[in-house]
Simulated assay, not measured.
Amino acid sequence: MTISEITPDVDRARWLADADFADAFRITVEAPALDARMAAERMLGQAPAWMAALVKLRNLLVRPFGLKTSGADAQNPRPMIGMFPVVDETPQRIVLGFDDMHLDFRVVIDAASHGKTSQVTATTLVQTHNALGRIYLTIIMPFHRLVAKTMLRQVAASA
């Protein structure tokens, strides 16, 4: 089970046209009929304790700045996976994310079956809006890479 960092291969113009950050990671798992929703649910359904603790800490730290602590929106309710609203969905691709005052982000999860295996790719797109967004992105980047890889490992662990 190897996770590879790859060049992002999504239509940025469609999902986040002015993204100033993008990365992508890919894993191949022993699961012949894995679709994008199943992959997303495995990735985001049950966070390890250390990730849940990081999210709680993040929420405590950003609340005074008026930043969202979840993508849930009472005025515009959408289906959610974990704390992320579903933006778009097909069997092969699910797009999650939301917009906030400091940055907008999308997580694009692609799943492709190949015989007895499936390949899952998680692409992250971020568009910052101001200094707070750029500072926030800089602070979370070391954690982002670790979290993205851990989430992909959860797809393999539950396959």
Rank of each mutant, 00 (worst) to 15 (best):
T7H: 08
P8A: 13
P8G: 14
D9C: 08
V10P: 15
D11M: 02
D11S: 13
R12D: 10
R12S: 14
A13I: 04
R14W: 02
R14H: 15
R14G: 09
L16R: 10
D18F: 08
D18P: 01
D18M: 08
D20Q: 01
A22W: 08
D23N: 05
F25V: 07
R26W: 07
R26Q: 14
I27D: 10
I27F: 14
V29N: 14
A31C: 11
A31D: 10
A31T: 03
P32N: 13
L34S: 10
L34Q: 00
L34P: 03
R37W: 10
M38V: 05
M38L: 04
A39P: 00
M43Q: 12
L44W: 13
L44P: 02
Q46N: 06
P48I: 03
A49S: 12
W50I: 12
W50K: 09
M51K: 07
A53I: 01
L54P: 00
R58W: 09
R58Q: 02
L60M: 05
V62A: 06
V62E: 04
G66N: 05
G66C: 11
K68A: 15
T69W: 14
S70P: 06
G71V: 02
A72T: 05
A74P: 01
A74Y: 09
A74W: 03
Q75Y: 11
Q75A: 15
M80Y: 03
M83E: 09
P85I: 09
P85V: 13
V86P: 02
V86G: 10
D88A: 12
E89C: 03
E89W: 04
Q92C: 00
V95L: 06
L96I: 10
D100W: 09
M101Q: 08
H102G: 00
L103W: 04
L103N: 01
D104W: 10
R106L: 11
V107C: 08
A112K: 06
S113I: 03
H114A: 15
G115R: 01
G115F: 13
G115H: 07
G115D: 09
K116S: 15
S118Q: 10
Q119M: 15
V120R: 07
T123V: 05
T124K: 01
T124E: 07
H129R: 05
H129P: 00
A131P: 00
L132Q: 05
G133K: 01
I135K: 12
Y136T: 03
T138Y: 15
I139P: 00
I139T: 07
H144A: 13
L146Y: 11
V147S: 06
